[in-house]
């Protein structure tokens, strides 16, 4: 359907105005929110994600697309909830203690929100206590953690352990990311998932949601 292609193109170009306009027009024309999301917006995000993976698109393009996606989600979210479509889940996100780098983590937050997750962003320099407190308060079962330095990465394992030992943290699915990490390291420190960039992070958390639902 050409309208879906227009929506997807709007996302790919990061054209927030046209994405919002098209979303409204589609709703006015009687289209269901879930159709707009799954057939227009998400395919656009998928195309951009693929380009990002090849280096053809970069941070500004991804940021703009995520913003356009979020703007459309603002409109669609109440309708989705009303029609019984559940949010994908709550994710607590933060850069670990001692680390002040957050551009990559912010990008992940944007992408997750665009994909339909609810994100509680703790910002930078977050220790185990703050993660645990956020899980307690929000009831989130998903947690994302980033580190950009080899030094702060070396403390991730300890933080994960502390979270898992806490009452609220037991059973929480944890994904990690950041430049110095790789899958082997993520496994070593007991993380449930690893994402090498923001687009992979979305897939990673979707996988963790599925894992939560099938115990």
């Amino acid at each position: 359907m050409p309208r879906d292609q227009e929506l997807a193109q709007g996302i790919i170009r990061g054209d927030r105005e046209s994405v919002v306009r098209l979303t409204r027009e589609e709703l006015d024309a009687g289209r269901e929110a879930v159709g707009i999301l799954n057939e227009g917006l998400i395919p656009g995000m998928d195309v951009l994600g693929e380009r990002f993976a090849r280096g053809e698109a970069f941070i500004p393009e991804l940021m703009a697309a995520a913003k356009a996606m979020n703007a459309a989600m603002e409109i669609l979210r109440p309708l989705l909830e009303a029609s019984g479509v559940e949010s994908l889940g709550k994710v607590v996100m933060g850069t670990v203690k001692g680390d002040m780098h957050d551009i990559g983590k912010n990008l992940v937050c944007m992408m997750l929100r665009g994909a339909g997750f609810e994100v509680i962003d703790l910002g930078v320099n977050a220790g185990a206590e703050r993660f645990i407190q956020a899980i307690e308060e929000s009831g989130a079962r998903l947690l994302g953690m980033s580190a950009l330095l080899t030094t702060t990465m070396s403390r991730m394992g300890g933080i994960i352990e502390e979270i898992r030992k806490s009452r609220a943290g037991a059973g929480v699915r944890i994904a990690v990311g950041g430049a110095p990490l790789d899958l082997a390291y993520a496994n070593k420190i007991g993380a449930d998932g690893y994402a090498k960039d923001a687009t992979v992070a979305v897939e990673c958390f979707k996988g963790l949601v599925a894992a939560l639902r099938t115990p």
Binding site: I59, I103, V124
Partner: peptide
């Protein structure tokens, strides 16, 4: 490090 303006300026300068 950790300044919100830095992120904005960084992305604009890419």
């Amino acid at each position: 490090a950790g300044r919100p303006e830095f992120e904005k300026a960084f992305i604009e300068a890419i």
